[in-house]
Amino acid sequence: MIDPLLYLRAVGVRLGDTPILRGVDLRVGAGEVVGLVGANGSGKTTLLRVAATLLVPTSGEGEVLGAGLTDEARYAIRSRIGLIGHTPALYQNLTLEENTRFVAQLMGAEPGSVGAALDQVGLAGARHRRAIQCSHGMQRRAEFARLLISNPDLVLLDEAHAGLDRHAADLVAFILQGVRSRGGGAMLVSHEHNRMAPLVDRVVELRNGAVGHWEAE
C-alpha cells in the first residue's frame, strides 16, 4: 500500500470570491484514521471532496493513493475510495437491496456479497424496502453495506455518527477497523467527539478553511 495514502500541501479551494479552504496541509498514512472537526462551514465537507478527488483544488498540491489531485490518473484510483457524505447516495425509488446490488455489480463483486453485507449492517429484514421508505439511519447503514462490498483503501466519512443509534455507530468502528487491518486509511468527520475519539489516531481541526494551530496527536 502506498504511504502516505493521502497528502495535501497548501491546498486551497475558492468558490467564486469565497475561500473555502486555505493552505491546508494534511497527511493520512497507511493504517491511520484521522478525525476532522470544525464548526459548520469550516470546510470539512469540501476537504473530504478534495480528498476523494471529486473537487480539484484551486491552489496547492497533493496526492491520493499515488495519483496527483489534478492528474488524469485520479480517475483510475477513485474506485478505491469510499465516501459517505451527509446526504445518502441512494436511489430513493430502489430498494436497499437493489441499491446495494447496483454497486456490487458495478464493482464486479460476488452476487452473494449483497445479502451478506445487508445482513452484517442489520438490514436483512428491510432489504425490500425502498430507500425513500427508510429512516436516515437505515440509509446510512445501507451505505455502510456498500463499503463492506467495495472494501476501499481510503474511507472518508462525513458526519459519521449523525442519526446513528449505538449499534449503527459500532458499524463505523467495524468499518474503520477493517480498513486499518488491510493497510488502508480513513478520515472521519464527526461532531460527536466522544464517539469519535476512540476511533481515531489524531484529530485535525479546521477553522475557517484552514488547519487550526493545534493538531492533537
Partner: peptide, 14 residues
C-alpha cells in the same frame, strides 16, 4: 434521479 451524491457515487465506483 441523479443528484450530487449519486453522481459522486458513480464517479467513486469508477
Amino acid at each position: 434521479v441523479e443528484g450530487t451524491p449519486q453522481q459522486d457515487l458513480l464517479s467513486l465506483l469508477g
